[in-house]
């Protein structure tokens, strides 16, 4: 009597292991582009409304809880931010002039202008559901023209890039994700490297800065102009927090604190920028309206730019 039950138990175990290993192998080799990817996108589309609903309920509760627990810290932070706003207002005019000069020079040199790229505003509706990745889910997807590899920014700087989009949402890999890598350079004494994220760390690590590079704590780090990078150049990434020479003088390991606070993200902008091609400007659509009034015919042609 016990033998068939033992055999059944073994059969179930072997079946589960083999199926899992097959799926892992297929997914690792082909990614989520085939039928498995389609099933995943359907799952996202189905769950999106639930995620939006729970987010709408959970976020105010979370904010209330944070406000209750951190009221002292929030008051202090509020005072600090007011002082910072006053200081930044003074710098705004100088920055505007610098941007205008920069744009003029870029036009003169025939370089892509980031300002000409459309952006799509999206709300963060969810965070990564797992423990070994750093991603967010936004509430706009394919229906707004959001595609894989589009860069995502916030007012403070780079957030990450789109890794998957479906109808009603998209998944964004944050800079701090272990699989994320972004080409960066320092502003003060230009040195170029690749900044990578790591598991459960808020910092980025650059481990390929040249040993002779002049990098100091507090240096600004921005995205580098590298061909086919998903990120346009000159976007704020963060500031250098520590510099450590590698063994045998091979190079410098530099830690960067991202400019964006990923835990406080509510809204982000998706840049319609295609790697290697530059900004995507939506094609203009032309509408012709003919109005006939007694004695005269008026034709109005309106050219509008719409997001497909």
């Amino acid at each position: 009597m016990a033998r068939p039950r033992t055999n059944r138990r073994r059969f179930v175990l072997v079946l589960v292991i083999l199926t899992s290993l097959t799926l892992i192998t297929l997914d690792s080799r082909n990614g989520r582009s085939g039928p498995l990817g389609a099933v995943g996108r359907v799952a996202h589309t189905v769950v999106s409304p639930v995620q939006h609903a729970t987010s709408a309920v959970a976020n105010p509760i979370g904010d209330w809880w944070s406000g209750l627990v951190d009221s002292g810290r929030l008051k202090k932070e509020n005072r600090k931010l007011r002082a910072e706003v006053a200081k930044l207002r003074g710098r705004e005019d100088k920055a505007r002039i610098a941007i205008e000069n920069d744009n003029e020079l870029r036009r003169f040199l025939g370089l892509d202008l980031l300002e000409s790229a459309d952006t799509i505003l999206a709300r963060v509706v969810d965070r990564n559901p797992g423990n070994f990745e750093s991603t967010i889910v936004i509430n706009r997807g394919q229906e707004h023209g959001i595609q894989k590899d589009m860069a995502v920014i916030a007012p403070d700087g780079v957030v990450g890039h789109v890794i998957e989009s479906w109808h009603g949402g998209a998944k964004v890999r944050l800079l701090t994700d272990p699989e994320s890598a972004v080409a960066v350079r320092t502003v003060e004494h230009p040195a170029t490297g690749i900044a990578q994220g790591s598991s459960h760390s808020d910092d980025l690590t650059v481990s390929d800065f040249d040993a002779k590079a002049i990098v100091a704590r507090g240096d600004h780090v921005i995205t580098a102009d590298v061909s086919n990078s998903v990120f346009p150049p000159d976007l704020e990434v963060g500031r250098v927090t520590s510099i450590k020479p590698q063994d045998a003088g091979l190079g410098l390991t530099v830690k960067i604190k991202p400019a964006v606070d990923f835990n406080e993200l509510d809204y982000v902008e998706v840049l319609r920028w295609v790697p290697g091609e530059g900004p995507v400007v939506a094609p203009p659509t032309t509408t012709t309206t003919t109005t006939t009034v007694p004695g005269a015919t008026t034709t109005t042609t309106t050219t509008t730019t719409t997001v497909p």
Partner: peptide, 25 residues
């Protein structure tokens, strides 16, 4: 338990960036 664990993990895997089938296994 194994069959339920497999499908629960697989369902979860669709929302993760780790390879499909890893949580299931």
């Amino acid at each position: 338990g194994a069959v339920f664990g497999f499908f629960a993990g697989l369902g979860f895997d669709f929302f993760l960036e780790t390879p499909l089938g890893l949580s299931a296994l």
